[in-house]
């Protein structure tokens, strides 16, 4: 019996006063409180953080130019194609 996948969160850290938050990676946590704690434990161990933002990865909308110099429709997408970002109806089974 497989545990459901633990949700994925993207982490943004403001490391010094005056700077903007910078994306530094992702982590798995069951809820926002645990995500913040995990972000502190993983990404600010060497005193790197004044302020931490955690965002569920699938809540982020992205617009990425796919090829430089080629025409593109500014399409809204997810930040990457993660298997948990797309809901599959239960009847379809494990995918």
């Amino acid at each position: 019996m497989a545990t459901p996948n633990t949700p994925l969160w993207e982490v943004f850290i403001r490391s010094r006063n005056g700077l903007a938050h910078k994306h530094c990676g992702s982590l798995h946590a069951s809820d926002a409180t645990m995500a913040l704690q995990a972000a502190r434990d993983i990404y600010t161990r060497r005193g790197e953080g004044l302020s931490i933002w955690v965002v569920p990865s699938n809540a982020i909308t992205a617009s990425d130019p796919s090829e430089k110099g080629m025409m593109f429709e500014p399409a809204e997408s997810k930040i990457y194609r993660h298997p948990t970002f797309y809901d599959v109806p239960d009847e379809v089974g494990h995918m």
């Binding site: 497989a2 545990t3 996948n5 633990t6 994925l8 992702s26 798995h28 930040i79 990457y80 194609r81 993660h82 298997p83 948990t84």
Partner: peptide, 9 residues
């Protein structure tokens, strides 16, 4: 994971 496979997998 950014390449489309979950950590669990």
């Amino acid at each position: 994971e950014t390449l489309g496979t979950s950590r669990e997998e």
